[in-house]
């Protein structure tokens, strides 16, 4: 008896979307949005709900609210995680989602997937203590622990393919144009 892998990813829908969007690049243009409101000190609240895609305004089922602050050792109140931590939240979840999707597409049953991300950050950059040190991460390391019905090589291939198709991995490893304006 053969069992069909089920990781809860609707690969069929994704493959159909890929085919449909091949001929309709306009519909594939998405805009993701977040809006931040300063609270006090280095604490801000960021809300995310609407986005644009498939040619029209879209909305998440519910609004998500994120508190961003800094820890007490930064002389802040620690109302939430630091902004640079949100980057690795994005990376970890994006790569994990990728592993699940690729596994589904390849018929690999997953039992558990855990990713640990460590971002090495020299804070002398943001403090202006040494102008040769960059502000952002110097190195990011992601470690996956995966239990699946697959060989070690197949699991490594899942993780490699997940990086290849990851929006956040690309956003972090390749430059992006960023425009910041005062309206």
């Amino acid at each position: 008896m053969t069992t069909v892998a089920d990781n809860g990813v609707n690969v069929q829908a994704l493959l159909e979307a890929r085919e449909a969007l091949k001929g309709a690049p306009e519909a594939a243009q998405f805009t993701w949005r977040a809006s931040a409101k300063w609270q006090s000190g280095v604490h801000s609240t960021v809300k995310v709900q609407s986005f644009f895609g498939l040619g029209q305004e879209q909305s998440h089922k519910e609004q998500s609210v994120f508190e961003a602050d800094h820890p007490e050792i930064f002389a802040a109140e620690d109302n939430g995680i630091t902004p640079i931590e949100y980057l690795i939240v994005g990376l970890a979840s994006c790569l994990t989602a990728g592993v699940a999707s690729v596994a589904q597409n390849r018929g690999i049953q997953l039992h558990s997937v855990e990713a640990t991300v460590e971002g090495a950050h020299d804070i002398r950059g943001i403090l202006g203590a040494d102008t040769d040190v960059r502000n952002g991460y110097n190195d990011i390391k992601v470690t996956f622990h995966i239990d699946a019905d697959a060989s070690k090589e197949d699991i490594e291939a899942l993780v490699a393919q997940s990086q290849k198709r990851s929006a956040v991995f690309d956003a972090l490893t390749n430059p992006t144009n960023v425009t910041v304006e005062v309206a």
Partner: peptide
């Protein structure tokens, strides 16, 4: 400006060769 994804293009090629 160069990509920081070098390690993964190595992995992809090594795994594919295997």
């Amino acid at each position: 400006l160069l990509s920081g994804g070098l390690r993964n293009v190595f992995s992809l090629a090594d795994l594919k060769l295997g």
